[in-house]
Simulated assay, not measured.
Amino acid sequence: MLKKKKLSQKKNLLMVLWDDSIAFRVLFFILAYLVLGFINMPFEKWLEAHSTEWRSTETPHYFFLQGLTHEKAKFIENSFFVLPIFEAIAVALICFIIYGLFYSVSKMIAFRNYCYIPLTEDEVKEMEFKNADEYFAYVLNKLTYGFKNEKENLQVSDDDLRKILITCLNVFPDNGTIFQINKETAYDVSDNILFSDAVILNCGKAEIINKHVVLSGVNRNGKREEYTV
Rank of each mutant, 00 (worst) to 15 (best):
Q9Y: 15
R25M: 11
R25K: 04
L34D: 07
G37C: 04
N40P: 07
P42N: 05
E48M: 10
A49P: 04
S51I: 03
T52A: 11
E53I: 05
R55V: 07
T57F: 09
T59K: 12
Y62T: 04
F64N: 11
L65A: 04
G67W: 01
T69Q: 14
T69F: 13
A73T: 05
F75S: 14
P84R: 04
I89D: 13
A90P: 05
A92W: 02
I94Y: 01
I94V: 13
C95S: 09
L101R: 07
S104P: 09
V105P: 04
A110S: 06
F111A: 07
C115Y: 00
P118F: 03
T120A: 04
E121Q: 01
K125I: 01
V139Y: 02
V139A: 04
V139R: 00
L140E: 15
G146K: 02
F147S: 06
K148W: 12
S157Q: 15
D158Y: 13
L165R: 03
I166H: 15
V171E: 08
D174T: 08
D174H: 11
T177N: 13
I178P: 00
I181L: 10
D188G: 05
D188N: 15
S190H: 10
N192Q: 07
I193T: 11
L194G: 14
K205L: 07
H212L: 09
V214E: 12
V218F: 11
R220W: 14
E225G: 15
Y227V: 06
